[in-house]
Computed example of a mutant assay.
Amino acid sequence: MKKNLFITLIISALGALTFFFYERSQAPSRVYEIGESLDSLNHVVVYYNGGMGNVSGRNTSPDGYNIGLKYQCVEFVKRYYYEHYKHKMPNAYGNAIDFFDKRLVDGQLNAERDLIQYTNPSKSKPKVGDLIIMDATFSNEYGHVVIVSKVTTDEVEIIQQNAGNPDHPRDVFDLDFDEGNWEIDNGRILGWLRMRKSDGL
């Protein structure tokens, strides 16, 4: 009995130490100010949000288009599409997870976003500028949405806002090609959305 208790205490201690060092590795290297510029893609800036659930008001365009809650992940991707592509989504609201319509098959038009939707895996390789939608988790029911900033034969780089550690607004995922399908190697990724003109539609 005492032996089992001892083993349980050792396992608990190791778990606590692992969590402690993981949290320290995720901690920012310095203090950031809310609204501080962290990175940019095509001159569209990624801002620091101050915390995953923080909201600093709503960002709207001069003509009244809802860009999103500052400085959430949705606000960045919609601001990028509005400023870089002059694109307005027919449905200007919703959380990140709402961007992906699970009823659609690979390559169909997502009418609410006026973007072509691809599933993960897909017949279509991700392209720079695509939106990648990530599923909800136990600690984040709203999902996450990012922009593809670079693509190689075996990797996809993304840029994101409100991802956690502000030291790292970019991340890289492995990209696999198997039996005619492209798959981004991350279990949370539902798929990606693309401007219609990119496919010549």
Rank of each mutant, 00 (worst) to 15 (best):
Q161V: 03
Q161F: 04
Q161E: 12
N162E: 08
N162H: 04
N162C: 06
N162D: 08
A163S: 13
G164Q: 00
N165E: 02
P166A: 05
P166S: 10
P166M: 06
D167F: 05
D167S: 07
D167K: 11
D167H: 04
D167Y: 04
H168G: 06
H168D: 09
H168V: 08
P169I: 00
R170S: 07
R170D: 08
D171C: 05
V172L: 09
V172F: 09
V172R: 12
V172T: 15
F173T: 05
F173A: 06
F173D: 04
D174N: 14
D174C: 03
D174R: 14
L175V: 08
L175C: 11
L175F: 07
L175R: 02
L175N: 05
D176G: 02
D176M: 11
D176H: 12
D176W: 08
D176E: 15
D176Y: 08
D176C: 05
F177C: 09
F177A: 12
F177R: 10
F177L: 14
D178H: 13
D178R: 12
E179H: 15
E179R: 13
E179F: 12
E179P: 00
E179L: 14
E179S: 15
E179T: 14
G180P: 10
G180V: 14
G180L: 15
N181T: 15
N181Q: 15
N181R: 14
N181F: 13
N181S: 09
N181W: 00
W182I: 09
W182E: 08
W182C: 08
W182S: 03
E183M: 12
E183A: 12
I184Y: 05
I184L: 01
I184R: 07
I184A: 07
I184K: 01
D185V: 10
D185K: 09
D185C: 07
N186L: 04
N186P: 03
N186E: 09
G187Q: 00
G187V: 04
R188K: 13
R188F: 09
R188P: 03
R188S: 13
R188E: 11
R188N: 12
R188M: 14
I189S: 02
I189L: 05
I189V: 10
I189M: 11
L190C: 07
L190D: 02
L190A: 06
L190R: 13
L190E: 07
L190W: 06
G191D: 11
G191I: 05
G191H: 10
G191T: 07
G191K: 10
G191R: 12
W192K: 02
W192C: 10
W192F: 15
W192D: 02
